[in-house]
């Protein structure tokens, strides 16, 4: 069942209404995400990748097209599609432990189970020492770890991440990316992640869905064959891998091609 489809996006279009008739953000986008896969949505700015993720989350409705998770149509936000945002969303009035328990509390998980699951995920993101701390004492990276633990503890069927490391400095970003891979090795998770960082995409993704800009359309889907069967734990592992430079160059050219089209248009 490794490659069974969990999320399917079919012919999604999105036009935001404006005074001048509307801005077309997405045109006829179709792709699917397989169970336990990390799928990255990549593309130049203005390609509508965040809009697409928000549609999957149920925070926006598509103008046309359909989406389904495990065969069930998606209507509005729900627990099964947990989301981690680029901005820090730890609730400042709750401690780390209370933040991670928050989603489970909403869903009526009994207290003992809630506590146990929260502590497990807090351990997974290396925040056990800070379980009783308030977010104001945490760094940006730690706040994002709280958000990831909180969403995972809520047992979503797919984890949606909208440029989760975009606000972090370069070094913290590495650590966060490596930690995400570490979590994926120990838990069965399906992730759909949006980024505009090419190296981040290659490092994390099993598959990259590349969108072109204005309006956002599906340009190509990249299977990262050179990573298949390789144990990649750190950025160094990736950079040393045969096939990495070619892959990075190919995506850079895709990005640049998009930029050139913009200029010509």
């Amino acid at each position: 069942m490794q490659s069974s489809t969990i999320l399917s996006v079919r012919n999604v279009c999105k036009t935001f209404p404006t005074r001048g008739g509307g801005v077309e953000a997405l045109r006829d986008v179709s792709f699917s995400v397989a169970r336990n896969e990390l799928c990255v949505l990549l593309g130049p700015s203005g390609c509508g990748k965040s809009t697409l993720l928000n549609i999957v989350a149920g925070l926006h409705t598509p103008t046309s097209g359909s989406l389904s998770l495990e065969g069930r149509p998606i209507h509005g936000p729900a627990r099964e599609r947990g989301m981690v945002f680029q901005s820090y969303t730890s609730f400042p009035w709750l401690t780390v432990l209370e933040n991670v328990e928050y989603g489970m509390k909403l869903n009526g998980i009994p207290k003992a189970e809630r506590r146990e699951r929260a502590l497990h995920y807090i351990g997974l993101v290396h925040l056990t020492k800070f379980r009783d701390a308030y977010p104001k004492t945490l760094s940006g990276g730690m706040k994002q770890r709280v958000a990831i633990a909180r969403t995972l503890a809520n047992a979503p069927e797919i984890l949606l991440m909208d440029e989760p490391y975009g606000a972090l400095d370069a070094e913290t970003r590495w650590h966060m990316q490596e930690m995400l891979l570490e979590i994926l090795r120990t838990t069965q998770t399906t992730i759909l992640l949006v980024t505009h960082d090419i190296q981040e995409a290659i490092f994390l993704a099993d598959r990259i869905v590349f969108l072109s800009a204005h309006p956002g359309r599906l340009k190509t889907i990249l299977e990262l064959d050179f990573k298949k069967g390789k144990e990649i734990r750190s950025k160094e592992d990736l950079v040393e891998l045969a096939g990495y430079p070619e892959c990075e160059r190919e995506i850079m050219q895709l990005m640049r091609g998009e930029a050139k089209l913009e200029e010509d248009a």
């Binding site: 989350a57 627990r79 599609r81 945002f85 969303t89 989603g103 909403l106 869903n107």
Partner: peptide
């Protein structure tokens, strides 16, 4: 109130009242 805080709760399964 930051929209993302509200969206966080909503995507964790929060009802309007919650």
């Amino acid at each position: 109130v930051q929209k993302d805080l509200i969206n966080t709760s909503v995507t964790l399964g929060g009802s309007r009242l919650q």
